[in-house]
Amino acid sequence: MTSLFERAVGSDWTELHPQIRERYGLSADDSVAIGTGRMSQLTHNVLALPVLWLGTTQNVLFPESGTDIPFEIKSEAFIDTDGNEALRLQRRFETDPPRRFDDTMRWNPERECITEFLGRDGRLVADIHLSVADGGLVIEIGEQWIRFGDRFISVPTPLAANAILQDWYDEYAGRFRVAASITNPLAGHVFGYQGVFDNEWRDEPPTDEPVRHSSLPSGRQ
């Protein structure tokens, strides 16, 4: 079975650093990938605080900021009920109080890309697109929806997020590095982080996934 990220990246997959391919090429038969490290920066815009506080109810965004914050990211691959590749990610930031940022990515065969369900219940949904830059992985957010059961309501452009995440392997440090930035046409910078982490593999039982059985947005891009 081709991994979710390998399918999305396509022929450029071989251009990724081998450490990136190993970590993000995990399939449903693999162990769970656990990244542990520290965020050198967590930032936010005070104008976005109401949205960030709301995000804490769904394990999406949060209002805390700071430097040198320990974090962990758990990545677990599985096959959804339609037989498509999927990946669940759970991030934990040791802020005060600790915060979570969870999402589930699933291959969307009709839209020919990854569709991401954000938060504990997957109420916020977005297409994401992957590319390769200097051996690192670049993830950009695309069209976005709010999910009501099996219905998907498009998010108007002024309210939509522009997000980019870069993940690469630092040969000199022998560690993974990550940087993410979320912006909005009205508010500007909303939320972001930069950090470094190590990766290990663990044998753990499968996680119960609340959006495992949900439908996917349809239609060509």
Rank of each mutant, 00 (worst) to 15 (best):
G188S: 03
A86D: 01
G174N: 10
P97V: 07
P156H: 03
W107E: 00
S65W: 15
A187K: 15
V132M: 06
V138G: 01
A179E: 11
A180F: 15
P109A: 00
G83V: 11
R111S: 05
G188A: 04
E116N: 15
W201H: 06
N84I: 02
D150M: 12
N59I: 04
W107T: 02
G136F: 07
P156Y: 03
P156L: 05
S75I: 01
R202K: 10
D80M: 09
G122P: 13
I128Q: 14
G135F: 12
Y193M: 09
L159R: 08
V178G: 11
P109E: 00
I128N: 14
R151T: 08
E110D: 12
V155E: 00
Q144S: 07
R175I: 07
S131I: 04
P158A: 00
Y193L: 14
R106L: 14
W145R: 09
T67F: 09
D82L: 13
N184D: 03
R99E: 03
S75V: 02
I79N: 05
S181V: 12
R91F: 06
R100I: 02
Q144Y: 03
D96M: 14
G195A: 10
R151Q: 10
T95Q: 01
V155W: 02
L89D: 07
V138K: 06
N108H: 08
A161I: 11
P97C: 04
D68G: 09
I153C: 03
W168F: 13
W145N: 04
R175Y: 05
R177T: 07
E200P: 01
R175P: 03
V138M: 05
L87K: 08
F78V: 08
E143Q: 15
Y169I: 02
F117M: 10
Y193P: 12
T104Y: 10
P98H: 06
Y172G: 07
R177I: 04
R175L: 15
I73L: 10
D134Y: 07
P206Q: 01
K74G: 00
H129C: 07
G66N: 09
I146V: 15
R177S: 08
E200I: 10
G66D: 06
L159Y: 13
Q166M: 12
Y193Q: 08
S181G: 01
G195F: 13
R88M: 07
N108L: 03
L130K: 04
T115M: 09
G149C: 11
P97H: 08
G188E: 02
D82Y: 10
N162W: 07
L165E: 08
I153V: 14
L118G: 01
A160I: 02
P156F: 04
F71G: 00
P63E: 05
A160F: 02
R177Y: 05
T183H: 05
Y172R: 15
A163V: 08
L186I: 15
V125G: 05
A173Y: 07
T67S: 14
L130F: 10
D127G: 01
D102P: 04
G195H: 08
E143R: 15
T183K: 11
I128D: 06
F101V: 01
S65Y: 10
G188T: 03
D198R: 14
P185N: 05
R99Q: 14
D80C: 09
D203N: 11
V60S: 11
Y172F: 11
S154Y: 00
T67A: 12
S181I: 06
D150R: 15
Y169C: 02
P185H: 07
